[in-house]
Design a protein around this nucleic acid. Structure first.
Lengths: 235, 235
DNA sequence: GCAGGGGGCTGACGGACCGTCAGATCCAGC
DNA sequence: GCTGGATCTGACGGTCCGTCAGCCCCCTGC
């Protein structure tokens, strides 16, 4: 739909506020919520998040969320058109925390021997981020996979910051060589690796991969791709 | 649940038939379906697959499947406990086609210069496989993500063959060096990359990555990880 | 401190879909 | 043609959804 495909390394850091018809928060009937209204809205959000932590998305009922927040289903619909809208708000809040990942990239040194350490820092940061927000990220993945454009956009923006930062690091680290392949494509596939491993991390150890060897594996690849040189693996 | 965590490189190729209490196919009421019954069951499966191609999973109704197959909802429940069970059968049928991917690995040469070509063959095979079976694979990912053990198992088995084959190739290609990291972990993360890129392939080009640079990117990484040497990139 | 207005909340309802019966229908085999 | 089992289905109770109209309570102005 939106044709704002940006140039590969453009910054494009719009603030994560939603750009609606009106910049004011609106309830279902068009009224602007007051103090009390905002409080229940927040309580509903918190309750949604906490239920998501130990309930599969498909068996998440509006009535449960509402009752859990000490209110009624009709009230829920006062503030959100559906459950997904509430989760979307939760997902957008993630952007702030996710931006810190890009900072990890900028702070690291990607030329020479330091690249592996920088990569491991990013890998660990990513895994930690994913673990902390697993419930929301799970449905974020779920719904963007289902073709929901709203979620797809949030997901893209979330990973985009990190990907762009890595692409910039690659360009900087390999500035003397002419890169044969689009830097965004190179680091994009690595980010895909990161996110998929983070998703299925539990499954990995289930099926015969010992301990935490996935971490150095990914760090090695990341360091190699960004720096362009075989990294000195911290054996 | 099942504690059959195998040694990293054990074959473990059980045939993809389901190992139930009885080796016979059963309907809901416990009877063995006859000729006519099997035909409608098959028609229901086909209809499920075709609806999945252009309907999101969440809006896939049993009544639609049943009507599409020219029968009634009650009949559907005669053969499948729920929609997921039908999709699970579809997913299991994929195993056969998926096994061919492992063959691609075995046939390739992973030492020296040939490694990049071998890797590109595997990458393309993987992407083709994913594109061909996208509707079913989408739901397979979806439901295993949701914690459904049945789907998780099928998904693991599907990727396991390929992963093991790659791990074996790695061990063979790097037999003179002592590998610092578990080979399964090394290739496992690459397979994670492959599957996640295959999933979001459309999104990649949407967001500013030109043409098909993801293919060589992944091939380069795959070749490097398996062979242990910087591959000669087919510029 | 009290009355009025409006923001906030809810019971209750129609509708969609689910999963399950008991009974109708079909099809061999005699 | 008749019969018994295999196959199919209409119809139902139940759950959840999303939406009203109307009630309650807070808060403001006097």
């Amino acid at each position: 739909m939106s044709d704002d495909a940006p140039a590969p390394t453009a910054p494009l850091d719009e603030p994560p506020v939603e750009a609606g018809d009106d910049d004011e928060l609106r309830a279902a009937d068009g009224r602007v919520p007051g103090r009390r209204g905002k409080a229940t809205r927040q309580k509903l959000l918190a309750c949604t998040a906490s239920m998501l932590a130990d309930t599969s998305y498909r068996e998440l009922k509006v009535v449960d969320i509402a009752r859990g927040a000490g209110t009624s289903p009709a009230t829920f619909y006062q503030y959100f058109p559906d459950v997904e809208a509430a989760i979307l708000v939760l997902a957008e809040e993630l952007s702030i925390d996710g931006a810190a990942l890009a900072d990890l990239v900028v702070e690291g040194t990607w030329r020479g021997k330091g690249s592996y350490d920088a990569a491991l820092t990013v890998v660990d940061g990513f895994l930690t981020f994913w673990d902390r927000h697993r419930p929301v990220l799970r449905v974020l993945d779920l719904l963007s996979e289902e073709g929901d454009q709203r979620f797809y956009k949030v997901r893209s923006r979330l990973l985009n910051k990190l990907t762009r930062a890595l692409a910039d690091a690659l360009i900087e680290a390999q500035r003397d060589k002419a890169p044969p392949i689009d830097p965004m494509a190179q680091v994009g596939v690595v980010v895909a690796m990161l996110s998929n491993v983070a998703r299925h991390r539990y499954g990995f150890e289930f099926w015969g991969i010992k301990g935490d060897d996935t971490r150095p594996s990914m760090a090695r690849i990341l360091a190699w791709v960004v720096s362009g040189q075989k990294p000195a693996t911290g054996a």
